[in-house]
């Protein structure tokens, strides 16, 4: 049973060997994010009468005292349609700085869609075990940017925010509240279901990689991040484990890791010869 669970959660039979503290930290952080997403509505419901607006949270919009953390993508959409206000700058600054420094870490560390993605990967693994074919369409790299720009343009044309309708962290956070507060799921459940089906039957983590406007936004902002995955070619045996374990189609084996890296560190943890490591590098410079 334990073996089955381990394999389901870590498909492709790849063992995480070292840098395990990093993986523990990431899993703890993700666990905390999920706990916040699903338990805050419950806690809220029981403290409704004595409500304190100084601590609020859904994955895309958190407030603790004076500290505000709002998703840069949703803030950008508002700024494009409504103009920039000081309030908006104040709420967006922490998120923009974090992503600029750490890159696309939200996707690998905090996104509440990650359990769904894990389930999708497990389903793909099961399908392949049963001898059924699984498609893995690689959409062109530019797709995510097209989706990002498209979502912003369509929103502007229609005069509505499109991002909260299709962006999984926003959708999941809202649906969690909806279930607890009103006892019913909304249309957002179908968005998550569609993303799951796409990831399972069309393209591995294809939604995160090519369709998620938030991922594209974080990749764009995170291009300034100095954190890189470095491959020491003298130790590398070209075993391809790192390329296979990566959900987002990066290629650490060929030292080709761009701003699409979600900082999950699984390539580093799974490398049999410890050829991979984190490296700080000023963006724009070639090593």
């Amino acid at each position: 049973m334990q073996q089955f669970v381990r394999r389901t959660l870590q498909p492709f039979d790849i063992t995480l060997r070292h840098h395990l503290a990093y993986q523990r930290g990431r899993q703890l952080f993700l666990g905390f994010s999920l706990l916040l997403t699903f338990s805050l509505p419950l806690w809220r419901l029981h403290t409704l009468e004595a409500n304190d607006p100084s601590f609020l949270g859904a994955p895309t919009s958190i407030r603790v005292g004076f500290f505000e953390l709002v998703d840069p993508l949703e803030g950008l959409a508002t700024a494009l349609m409504r103009g920039v206000s000081w309030n908006l700058v104040w709420t967006l600054l922490p998120g923009v700085l974090l992503v600029g420094l750490l890159g696309r870490f939200f996707c690998g560390w905090a996104c509440p869609y990650l359990p769904v993605l894990a389930a999708s990967n497990a389903a793909r693994w099961l399908l392949s075990r049963l001898g059924l074919p699984t498609a893995d369409v690689k959409l062109p790299r530019v797709t995510s940017r097209v989706v990002l720009v498209g979502v912003l343009v369509v929103g502007s044309v229609l005069g509505v925010q499109v991002v909260p309708l299709v962006y999984p962290p926003a959708v999941i956070g809202r649906e969690a509240f909806r279930v607890v507060f009103y006892g019913s799921l909304g249309a957002g459940a179908f968005v998550v279901l569609a993303a799951f089906l796409f990831d399972t039957f069309v393209s591995r983590a294809g939604f995160c990689r090519s369709l998620c406007p938030g991922g594209a936004m974080f990749s764009t902002l995170g291009a300034a991040s100095p954190i890189k995955v470095h491959n020491d070619r003298s130790k590398c045996t070209d075993c391809t484990v790192c390329d296979v374990v990566c959900n987002l189609g990066q290629s650490p084996m060929q030292n080709k890791v761009d701003s699409g890296c979600e900082r999950c560190g699984k390539c580093i943890a799974s490398c049999p010869t410890k050829a991979l490591s984190w490296m700080l590098q000023v963006p724009g410079k070639k090593s």
């Binding site: 409500n51 508002t78 005069g159 909260p164 809202r174």
Partner: peptide, 13 residues
């Protein structure tokens, strides 16, 4: 509709 990001904070409080 242009400004609201559907974050649920208002319903939350």
């Amino acid at each position: 509709e242009e400004a609201c990001i559907g974050c649920f904070r208002c319903a939350e409080v």
